[in-house]
């Protein structure tokens, strides 16, 4: 079936040694996880940005914290609504106690905690993309080096240095490098995109956190 396609991927993988196969398996798992993270985080970040923008429109329209809180319930995945909700919950718990001191400071701390938690939530699993982007080519290279070592050993056993004896082993070994690059390139691209988007959300949270705190007292 595949005999003719001498350079076919199936033929190459079938002729590879166990170490190269293990490397290929690791790289394929890396690639699957990377793509899952990219897809998952892409939707996550997009939804967060969209809901944050919608909430900000409402925030500028409505000056009442109670109404804003009611609106923020509709944006469960947005980062800014989540930060606002955390501040509001803290504010509503303190304002009942009139003697509570340093109300503003406590709300600020609460908002800051939520910003950190939201940053963690956004960046969760994203460093894995960086890991794949950095290590996958080297893992592939390791497989290639190992495969070429085996190929040269086989060449020595065959007692022939002809192109026909050398080329298949090297070709099989190079599949590992190619797979490493296939895993690494999307991971790096996804990592760059997600870090850029998450960085924007984090800046928005840091910018609007004081405004949220002030909004509780200016209503």
């Amino acid at each position: 079936m595949f005999e003719h396609a001498g350079g076919g991927i199936v033929t190459l993988i079938a002729g590879a040694g166990p170490v190269v196969l293990l490397v290929l398996l690791v790289l394929v798992v890396f690639s699957i996880i990377s793509w899952a993270i990219i897809a998952w985080k892409f939707g996550f970040v997009r939804k967060s940005i969209r809901e944050s923008q919608d909430f900000l429109e409402s925030f500028f329209d409505l000056q009442n914290a109670d109404k804003l809180f009611a609106v923020s319930e509709n944006y469960r995945n947005g980062s800014l609504p989540r930060v606002f909700r955390a501040g509001y919950i803290e504010f509503s718990g303190i304002r009942d106690r009139a003697a509570a001191s340093n109300i503003k400071e406590r709300i600020r701390l609460s908002v800051k905690r939520e910003v950190n938690a939201e940053s963690k939530r956004l960046t969760r699993m994203v460093p894995f993309l960086a890991t794949v982007g950095n290590t996958a080519p080297f893992i592939g290279l390791f497989g290639t080096v190992w495969g070429i070592m085996s190929a040269f050993q086989n060449i020595g056993l065959m007692k022939s240095a002809s192109l026909a004896a050398v080329a298949p082993g090297i070709s099989e070994a190079l599949v590992a490098t190619a797979t490493g690059l296939v895993a690494a390139i999307p991971a790096v691209m996804g990592y760059n995109y997600l870090t850029h988007q998450i960085g924007q959300i984090e800046r928005d949270m840091e910018d609007f956190a004081p405004d949220f705190v002030d909004s509780f007292f200016n209503q």
């Binding site: 079936m1 396609a5 076919g8 991927i9 199936v10 699957i32 996880i33 793509w35 993270i37 897809a39």
Partner: peptide
């Protein structure tokens, strides 16, 4: 959700490999 995405990614990888093999067969 993440596990769902992993399943989808694995299926996509299998689909890509199958597509490559089929393409090679057609090319031959």
């Amino acid at each position: 959700r993440f596990y769902v995405w992993i399943g989808i990614a694995a299926a996509a990888h299998v689909a890509v490999v199958v597509a490559v093999v089929v393409f090679q067969l057609l090319y031959v």
